[in-house]
Design a binder for these strands. Structure first.
Lengths: 148, 148
DNA sequence: GCAAACAGTACAATTTTGGTCCTGTTTAGG
DNA sequence: CCTAAACAGGACCAAAATTGTACTGTTTGC
């Protein structure tokens, strides 16, 4: 079905909650409530987001998480990469040598182009935009797909 | 990792073999050899492609498969959809009602926009282009991502 | 009627995902 | 300095999806 994992989906929701929090430090507990998700799940994905440097964590009592940078500087691609690793539509596009057919595969190069097109599409949407479902932006982002 | 399944990957390879076959009817056996894949696997994916109407099958001895239409009229999106079903980055974008949070989910609409951007990117590359890894096309295909 | 080749289904093994839990470590406050 | 809240880092297990294969039909040309 070509989809991101649930955890990635949840991550975008939690991130938007952090945007709504306006820079305040929010605990995983609070974020779980606001996102209406289970605490262990939210806790898990926040750790991954922190590891990727998208959120900053504060330990100890009154600790919690906050965005590492401006919502306009965080893209959906950042979140996807943080949760799922490098974007690659086929196995051979990220892990070289994992496919026996690499040497005689004619479609590999083109898949790599498709990859970057999709990465661009994901990178063209910022977290700030994700939090504004109603306000339709007047323009649109042109993504250029270079194909063989 | 945001990738298509191996079977989808294989499907593109087999499809390019059919393109190289220049309209000739090729058996699953022959296609398996040319794609250097196992026969049962190739057989399986060809059935799916036939079911989706991308290839036409001929039964009986001397039977086999051929493309249902011109390679320039078949896109990567067609193949992905044939193998994996409708393109939807999140569960809620294809199956409505599958998520408890639909009513109060602020990111849903934006994911749907990202979906169509990616579908566009996949639809902008034709099978004919996938068979020409060397010949770089002069232009590029602009894909417009409308974001909230 | 025989053999090649597709159709449809079913199935086992593996991998990935989803979700939970447990044991540290840090920190504010009494 | 002791406690409780909260993050860090694994470990773990159950469920689901993916992969790859096999089996039983049905069609068709010779």
């Amino acid at each position: 079905m070509l989809r991101v994992s649930k955890l990635t989906d949840y991550a975008t929701v939690v991130m938007t909650c952090l945007v709504d929090g306006a820079g305040e430090v929010l605990s995983a507990q609070v974020l779980a409530e606001r996102a209406r998700l289970e605490l262990p799940t939210v806790s898990k994905l926040l750790k991954q987001l922190a590891h990727a440097g998208l959120v900053l964590s504060t330990r100890g009592i009154n600790g919690g998480y906050r965005l590492a940078r401006d919502p306009a500087q965080i893209t959906v691609a950042d979140i996807v990469v943080a949760m799922e690793g490098p974007i690659g539509m086929t196995e051979c596009s990220t892990r070289s040598g994992s496919c026996d057919h690499e040497s005689h595969c004619g479609v590999r190069v083109n898949w790599q182009r498709i990859n970057s097109a999709i990465a661009d599409a994901l990178a063209s949407v910022t977290l700030a935009e994700m939090t504004k479902p109603a306000a339709r932006r007047t323009g649109s982002i042109p993504v250029r797909v270079a194909v063989a």
